[in-house]
Simulated scan of single mutants.
Amino acid sequence: MATGSQMGRTAIERGTEWLSRGGLRPTRQRVALAALLVGDGEHRHVTAESLFALSVRGSEKVSLATVYNTLRAFCEAGLIQEVVVDGARSYFDTRMDDHPHFFWEDTAELFDAPKDQLEISRIPELPAGSELSRVDVVIRLKRG
């Protein structure tokens, strides 16, 4: 992931355009975090803590609380999606289409799984008065 002076103008421009697509005001801190998330054009999965660690190396200093709040704002704007792997750990994914994930339990790493290899033939009947929002599939892995 690009950091500091490696981000250059292109990463900042990509981050700013990305924020604009979500209708978010491009504050310095949002632009810096957006550049870390999407500045190289690659999709990634981050935790608030891992994004904070990356931001520490950059020129724009942000607090961990700001990272949490900014990630929530990015989710609400439809720019990223939250992937909850257990009650205590959330990842934020810049890839917005529906797709499954592999989660390595020993290293706590989250990766995209091949979407075309997953088949869900049926889901349980939904409770009255509800509608399906989305289905999250996290396939937990351990070394064998």
Rank of each mutant, 00 (worst) to 15 (best):
G39C: 07
K115M: 11
E60W: 07
G129T: 11
R95T: 03
S133M: 12
E76M: 14
P100R: 11
H43G: 00
P100F: 06
Q117P: 07
T66E: 13
I120P: 07
H45V: 02
G129R: 09
S55I: 03
R95L: 05
S121Y: 10
V84L: 12
G144D: 04
S20C: 12
E105F: 06
G8N: 10
A88M: 06
G8K: 03
G8F: 05
E119T: 13
R21L: 07
G58C: 11
S55K: 02
K142P: 04
F102W: 09
S130I: 14
G144P: 03
H45F: 07
L64D: 02
W104H: 13
Q29M: 11
D98T: 11
E82C: 09
A2H: 13
R72K: 15
I139Y: 09
A48K: 00
L24I: 09
P26D: 03
M1E: 15
P127M: 13
A108W: 04
G39I: 01
L54E: 15
R14Q: 10
L118W: 08
M96W: 02
Y91C: 03
A77T: 09
D40F: 07
L64G: 05
G39E: 01
D136T: 14
V46Q: 03
T27W: 03
L19I: 08
L19N: 04
T10K: 15
T47W: 01
T27M: 04
G22S: 06
G78Y: 11
R9A: 14
D86P: 01
R57C: 12
P124C: 13
R44K: 14
R21P: 00
V56T: 11
R89A: 05
T66I: 11
V135F: 12
D93S: 07
C75I: 12
R30C: 01
R25G: 09
P114Y: 07
L54S: 10
R134F: 10
H101I: 04
V85T: 00
D93I: 00
E17S: 12
E60A: 13
R44H: 05
E13W: 14
